[in-house]
Every structure is written in C-alpha cells, then in structure tokens.
Design a protein around this nucleic acid. Structure first.
Length: 276
DNA sequence: CGGCAAACCTGCGAGC
DNA sequence: TGCTCGCAGGTTTGCC
C-alpha cells in the first residue's frame, strides 16, 4: 500500500541497510517490470557505494557514489524486504535482488508489476520524465493553504480527483486523500474550484497531519518489521474512513455512517453529514 | 486543455 | 471444492 508514508518508511528501512554499503550484486530476475529495465543496469550499479537513500513523492531514490541514481517505484503491489543474503531463497515475484558487501539482501517483490526501476544521473534527476512535473512535497514548507488554494482555483474536477493529481501535490494516494478530506471536513465531491481559502488552509493542515501521523506509525513499527519479516512499510494502520463503508462515522453519530462512492473509477470513503 | 474511463498485471475474497 | 466476478494502495494513455 505504498503512498507517501509507506514509501518514506521503506526508504528509512532501506537506508539502514544500504547507506554507505557497496552494492556487490544486482540480480535481475526478469528483463522488465512495468517498463524494460535500463540497458546495462547491472554493470552501472554493481561495485558502486550507496551515498544516500531519498524519497520524492512516491519515488525511492538510491544515490550512488559516482552520481548515478536508481529510481524505484512500488506501484500498487511492490514491496521491499531486507534480510541476510546468505540462505536467501527467492519467492514468486522477487524480480530484483540487491546484495551488499555487508552480506545483506534487499528483495524487490511486485506481483502486479506496476512498479519499476530506472536509472539516471544526479544532475539530470530534476529533468527526469517521471519527476519533472511533480508538485510540491506536502510535508515541505512550500506547501500550505494559500498555495493549495491557488492550485485548486478554477478546476472543475472534484477535490478528491485534484488531490490525486501528483502535479498539485505529490505523494497522496487513494487512502490518504479520503483520510485528509475527512479530517478537513470537506466533501470529496466538492469541485476543486469552489474550495475557499479557509478550507484550503484546513485541508493543507489535515494533509500534513494525516501524513505525519502515518509516518510516525511506520517509524515506530519499523524496528519490529526489520527484525522479524524484514518487509518494509506495511505496518498496522488506523484509518478513520478508508475501507470503513457502513461503519459509524468516528466524527458524528449520523444515520448513514461512512459511505463509499466511486470517483474517477476509484473508491472514496466519507461521511456525507460531517463533510460538506 | 480538462476530465474521465480504460489499460497495464496478478492475487484475493465473496458469492454461487 | 471450484469457478466467476469484483476489487485492489498507481500512473499513463487515449478519447470526448
């Protein structure tokens, strides 16, 4: 379930294993994920030392000591699992395996293969096709009420769809959009252009709060996951509305409870009474 | 240009 | 038990 908080948790877990280590072996177990793997990827990566693991939106950026950058995206079903390289037995859909000079392994497993792996050089990163059009990081200082209001202004799409647009704000997905709109008391059906300055202020605040709390939950569970299954990012969530169709609204005692509607072919969960 | 549905691919749970 | 259907956290493409 990789949205921004999960990807952030994965990055932190990867950093613990990869940062400062040499990638001794990059095992490519198939020639493509969503896209064909870059030509010569194995040779470009093997022997390089990892200088940093960063995140931009839902992208994982593994910086190498020669200026190369591995760009990974988990898609819908992608997951990273870390553990000892010795005795590793790949399972179904383990497509890429990193092995470090410290004897650790990272497995990139993705059943649906909506995820991908790409390579760029650090100076060209900003111009990369996948990154260049991304909007602001929601947890950054530049993302706030006035700038969100300006981005939503004039748009005819529902605010739910606008928040999923990575050009408006980068890193939100289907779950945290529902959660943020609930916390802000804003109906997902509202047309983006009708959101007032005050509402945008509340919405920006809700987005930061929801994401921040999810990252904190991921961080607190990271230790356990690394020690046991080694699978990163898939911690226990406590969502207010996502997946809660028919359950009582946690914010009021209305008859209907949490409703599920479909917008742009995707589920939205909300309380019609509390969210206007 | 903006907004929406469909497509990409596989797995899982519900219902018959 | 076994089949079919609907649904799934993302992103791009193509159509109106």
């Amino acid at each position: 379930m990789p949205e921004l908080p999960e990807v952030e948790t994965v990055c932190r877990g990867l950093a613990a294993v990869l940062d400062g280590r040499v990638i001794a072996e990059l095992e490519l177990r198939r020639p493509d994920l969503r896209f064909p793997l870059p030509l010569g990827l194995k040779q470009l990566v093997e022997g390089r030392r990892v200088s940093a693991v960063k995140r931009r939106a839902k992208y994982i950026l593994i910086h190498l000591d020669d200026g190369g950058v591995l760009i990974a995206h988990l898609g819908m079903s992608g997951r990273m699992t870390i553990g000892p390289a010795e005795g590793l037995v790949p399972i179904l859909h383990d497509h890429v395996i990193f092995r470090t000079d410290a004897g650790m392994a990272v497995r990139f497993n993705d059943a649906r293969r909506f995820g991908f792996l790409d390579y760029a050089t650090a100076p060209a990163l900003g111009a990369h096709k996948l990154l260049r059009d991304l909007g602001p990081e929601p947890l950054g200082n530049e993302f706030n009420g006035p700038m969100l209001a300006a981005s939503l202004a004039g748009k005819l799409a529902p605010v739910k769809a606008a928040l999923l647009d990575q050009k408006i704000v980068a890193g939100l997905g289907n779950i945290y959009v529902s959660e943020s709109l609930f916390q802000a008391g804003l109906s997902p059906r509202r047309l983006a252009g009708t959101v007032t300055g005050g509402e945008a202020e509340q919405l920006a605040h809700a987005i930061k709060d929801v994401l921040g709390r999810a990252i904190a939950a991921g961080g607190s569970s990271l230790r356990d996951y690394v020690q046991t299954s080694g699978e990163l990012g898939y911690f226990q969530h406590q969502w207010a509305v996502y997946g809660k169709e028919g359950e009582p609204c946690p914010g009021c005692n209305c008859e209907e409870g949490i409703q599920r509607i479909v917008q742009s072919n995707r589920s939205t969960f909300y309380c019609a009474k509390r969210q206007r």
